[in-house]
Design a protein around this nucleic acid. Structure first.
Lengths: 139, 139
DNA sequence: TTAATCTTCACAAAAATAGTAAACATTAAT
DNA sequence: ATTAATGTTTACTATTTTTGTGAAGATTAA
């Protein structure tokens, strides 16, 4: 499951994608609208900024804007930053590869299936973008 | 990522699938061969037994056997027991559905994509069986 | 100058994960 | 019956991860 932090991050980025047309959006606004504890959102935005997704604007009338076009920002890349690997085993992760302790990759019976699982998941998440996860308006 | 416990469970069940032909297999054997702390494996086997995957045989010359044909035991169902939901959001889980706090399902922009992700993952894991995750022999 | 922002860093509470310990119950062989 | 080998059960503990909180500081536009 995605962590709460990851959900917050995706919601916040989606909010920005929807509302940044008129300039930087306040963290306090996002916190309030998306019901995210502000101090926690600060931590999250710090990570997202460090990873290049966000651009911050300090001072009065500051706020945050997205660094890139929402239609070019993959959901998979956001999740990797805030939630870590998408693969279910470290030894089949493309971006966070690590050996499994005490497990021989040559004979492991799990790798094959979890490579397939990874590919199936990536087929979706690598082809969906921030512009695809914007909340709908209430009607 | 799968928890360590889940990896242990899959490895242990795979070992049973491979080695139970001659009768019940000792937990101590599985613990040693698969390098799983025995006391921890006891907890895991208790869960797997409660869930119906394992049959235990007490007393001298006891041990464990699989309750069902390995070719009919889905990997997805094992993971659900020891690791929990396969979906990335509670609100799109088929077997562990729960509402996301402070999130409106009607307008949430995340649900659609994570339903697709769930389906993609299940397409693999619901169609792979315990017989598919048996470790290879060293050659 | 000032008020509204973001920045940074350290800390803390809560939950989940991983693992341990020990007394107990059951069984098969003898 | 006895005995040794096994699983059973329950409670506990340690570690790590997650989910936050708090406060002093830096920057900017008006």
């Amino acid at each position: 499951m995605l962590s709460q932090k990851s959900k917050y991050a995706l919601k916040a980025l989606g909010y920005l994608a929807k509302n940044q047309a008129d300039g930087p959006v306040l963290m306090s606004t996002i916190s309030r609208e998306k019901k995210i504890p502000q101090a926690f959102l600060e931590n999250i935005f710090h990570e997202l900024k460090k990873a290049g997704f966000l651009t911050s604007h300090r001072g009065r009338f500051g706020g945050y804007t997205l660094s890139d076009d929402p239609s070019k920002t993959k959901v998979s890349s956001i999740i990797r930053v805030v939630n870590g690997p998408l693969a279910m085993l470290p030894c089949v992760s493309l971006n966070f590869y690590a050996t499994c302790d005490d497990c021989c990759e040559a004979t492991c019976g799990l790798r094959g299936i979890f490579q397939e699982a990874r590919d199936a998941l990536l087929q979706v998440l690598e082809n969906r973008y921030l512009s695809d996860i914007i909340d709908k308006d209430i009607e």
